[in-house]
Design a protein around this nucleic acid. Structure first.
Lengths: 220, 220
DNA sequence: GTTGATTACCGAATAGTATTCGGTAATTAA
DNA sequence: TTAATTACCGAATACTATTCGGTAATCAAC
C-alpha cells in the first residue's frame, strides 16, 4: 500500500558508517558524511534509524557478538585451562580493544556521551556477561555459577577500561605479562615468591598445588 | 603593567562548574550556564581556561587525588591485609564511582569524547597507577613492585569501567560480595569449593593457608 | 598624579553539529 | 487507474563550544 524500506539502503548506511567509524571514530564522523558515503540524503538516515547512536549500536552489537562467537569456538581446542583463561583474557583486554583501529572505543564513546538519556538498555552487556561467566566457569575451578558471574562482571569492566583508554595510550593494548600474571593469580592466588615464580609455573609447583587442592577438597 | 587574573574569579568558575557537573553531568552542562553561575561572560572563561575539558580536569585531578589521599591515610589503621585489600577495592570500584552523583563519570565522558585530540596527557593516570601499586604491594604478598604495577593497571581499568557504567546501571555500584570474592581470589587463588567458602574464611582455613604458605616459602 | 601599555572582560558573531519540517514523488494494494 | 501511504530530499532549526573586536580596568614607570 506504500513504498517500503529497502534493505540495500539500510545496509549501505551501515557499511558507510562502519567504514567511517573505524577510520575516523564515532564523534569525528558526522551524519552528512555517512549519508554522502551511503548515497542518500542526511534526513533519510532518520527513516532507517532513530539516531546516530542507534546506527552505531546496530553495527557494534553484531560485531561484538561475532568476536565472542569466535572466542567461544576457539576454546574447546585448547586443552590447558590456564591457556584457555589466557585466551579469554587476551581476547578481551588485548585483541578486541585494539582491533579495527580501536573500534570498540567508539562504543565506549557513545555510551559515555549519549547513553544516559534513554534509548539504551543493558541487554547487550548482560548477555555478554552471562556468556563470559560460562567461559570463565570452564577455566577457573570451583567458582560456581554465581562466582563466575561476579568475576565476569569485573573482567568486563576492565574490558571497558581498556577499550576506553585505547587511543589515549597511543594505541597500546594490555601487555602480555600482565595477562599471564593475572591469570596465574586467578588460578593460584598471590605468588609464593615474586622473584621465583616463572611466567609458567614449573611442573613441580603445579603438581604440589594440585595435591594441596585435592587434599583440601577431601579434608575441607 | 596590566590587569591581572583574579583567583576569586577562577575559583568562582571552578565552583560553578563543579556544582553543575555534579548535578547535571559534563555534557549536559554548557559554557553559558557555567558562566552565568560564576557571574562572568562566557568568553571570559577562555581567559582562565583553554577549554571546557580543561575546566573539568582542573576540578577532577585534585578531587581524585584527595580521594586517594584519604584512602592511603585510612589503610595503616587496618591490621588485616585482607581487610586492607577490601578497603582499596571497595573504594575504587564502589565508593568513588558512586560518590557525588557519579562525578568520576564526568571524567570518563570527557576522556571518551575529547581527549584523543591532544591536550591530554596520561600523567594523572600514571601517577595514580603508581600510588595504587604501592598500596596493593602492602596487601597482596609477594607481588613485587613490577607485579603490583601490573595488577594496579588492571584494577584501574576496571575502575574506569565502573565509573563509566555508573549511570547506565541506574546508579548501581559494585556489589559487596563481588569485592570479597575478588579479594579472596587475589589472596588465595580460585576457591577450593564454591559452596563451602564463606565470605570471611574460617580460622581453621586461614591457619591452614598460612601453614601452606610458610611451608611453600621454606621448600619453594 | 598622569601616561602608556597590557590584558581582563564582554556582546555579538562563527562554525559546526544532530535532528526535524514540509513538500514531492515513488510505490503498492485495491 | 486510483488512492493512500511513506520513502526521500533540501532547507531550516536549535544547540553547542569557541573566537573576534572593541572597551575599559589595572599596573608600572615617570
Amino acid at each position: 500500500m506504500a513504498q517500503t524500506k529497502k534493505i540495500e539502503i539500510r545496509q549501505a548506511i551501515l557499511d558507510a558508517a562502519y567504514e567511517l567509524f573505524s577510520k575516523r571514530g564515532y564523534s569525528d564522523t558526522n551524519i552528512t558524511e555517512i549519508a554522502r558515503a551511503a548515497k542518500v540524503a542526511p534526513a533519510n538516515l532518520y527513516v532507517y534509524f532513530r539516531s546516530k547512536l542507534e546506527i552505531l549500536l546496530s553495527i557494534y552489537e553484531p560485531w561484538l557478538v561475532k568476536r565472542f562467537d569466535e572466542l567461544e569456538k576457539s576454546l574447546p581446542r585448547i586443552a590447558s585451562p590456564r591457556q584457555r583463561l589466557l585466551k579469554i583474557l587476551s581476547t578481551l583486554w588485548r585483541d578486541i580493544p585494539a582491533v579495527e583501529n580501536g573500534f570498540a572505543n567508539n562504543w565506549m564513546r557513545a555510551l559515555a556521551t549519549t547513553a544516559a538519556r534513554e534509548g539504551y538498555s543493558p541487554r547487550l552487556r548482560l548477555a555478554i556477561e552471562e556468556r563470559l561467566a560460562g567461559l570463565l566457569d570452564g577455566c577457573v575451578p570451583n567458582l560456581g555459577r554465581a562466582g563466575a558471574r561476579e568475576l565476569a562482571n569485573i573482567v568486563l569492566m576492565a574490558f571497558d577500561g581498556y577499550a576506553l583508554n585505547f587511543h589515549l595510550n597511543g594505541g597500546a593494548s594490555c601487555a602480555r605479562r600482565r595477562l599471564t600474571l593475572f591469570a596465574d593469580i586467578l588460578l593460584n592466588g598471590a605468588p609464593l615468591a615474586a622473584s621465583r615464580r616463572p611466567t609458567k609455573p614449573s611442573r613441580r609447583q603445579a603438581s604440589r598445588r594440585a595435591v594441596e587442592r585435592a587434599v583440601a577438597h577431601v579434608t575441607g
